[in-house]
């Protein structure tokens, strides 16, 4: 979907300039792509957890620059806003909350590296195949005015692709509701678990989100959760 925006305004196929004698923008595109790829590889190979998250920032930022070079300005900024500004912060928040040691953390390595590599390669191949198949003969005129402006993207998104967009939002809503339900369920479990204890049911009933509560200290409960 992200690649679709520039393709709308792509000029007609046929009279494309060819791969030889690239322009400056194309060279920049390639270099940034290489840097992004490098950052992505480091992200998955580094043995330091937080470094991986920070390299992910570089990779996502590189992607944003690629969008910019493809004159898809709006997509680029949304990329930065959502991924760098929120997703990575959420990721770092989670890491810091659980474990984020300075230095290497070899115990965080996955045992099935090769399977992961296989899955990654397969999905990459699928994506590349889809994109290449879809935009094989499409060229974007980079020298003209920006073609991925907000107006164009918006019109495209809400005229041609409204249904997938809405389906995606329903999916996200479902995820949101699911997350809330999950966290609430755990909470009621705690409530019933410590329900035998005197006076804790009222306490846990009001506190949404404090899932680790095991009843007040000094209560006769044995703390079933531990």
């Amino acid at each position: 979907m992200l690649h679709a925006a520039p393709s709308l305004v792509a000029s007609a196929a046929g009279d494309h300039p060819g791969f030889l004698s690239p322009s400056g923008v194309e060279i920049a595109f390639l270099l940034v792509g290489l840097a992004t790829l490098g950052a992505a590889v480091i992200t998955v190979t580094t043995r330091q957890l937080v470094h991986a998250a920070l390299w992910l920032v570089v990779a996502l930022g590189g992607l944003a620059v690629e969008y910019l070079l493809l004159t898809a300005e709006f997509i680029a900024w949304v990329q930065v806003l959502i991924y760098v500004g929120s997703i990575v912060v959420l990721l770092l928040f989670g890491l810091m909350l659980t474990r984020a040691p300075i230095g290497r953390s070899p115990d965080a390595d996955s045992g099935n590296r090769w399977v992961a590599l296989g899955v990654a390669l397969a999905s990459a191949a699928a994506l590349v195949w889809v994109v290449v198949d879809a935009f094989r003969t499409t060229w974007i005129d980079l020298d003209g005015p920006a073609q991925g402006s907000t107006r164009v993207t918006g019109a495209f998104l809400f005229r041609n692709w409204v249904l997938p967009f809405e389906a995606l939002s329903v999916l996200l809503l479902a995820a949101l509701v699911g997350a809330i339900v999950l966290s609430r369920k755990r909470d009621t479990e705690t409530g019933t678990g410590t329900g035998k204890n005197t006076g804790t049911g009222k306490d846990t009933g009001t506190d949404v989100g404090t899932t680790s509560r095991t009843g007040p200290s000094g209560a006769p409960g044995k703390g079933e959760k531990r």
């Binding site: 920070l54 300005e73 949304v78 806003l81 500004g85």
Partner: peptide, 25 residues
């Protein structure tokens, strides 16, 4: 910048990453 609001808010969000990095490192 065409998508001014998005640019501004996106880039301002990056600034907080500095605090996070400082806090962790």
């Amino acid at each position: 910048v065409d998508a001014g609001i998005f640019f501004v808010l996106a880039v301002m969000g990056i600034g907080v990453l500095g605090s996070l990095m400082a806090g962790w490192a």
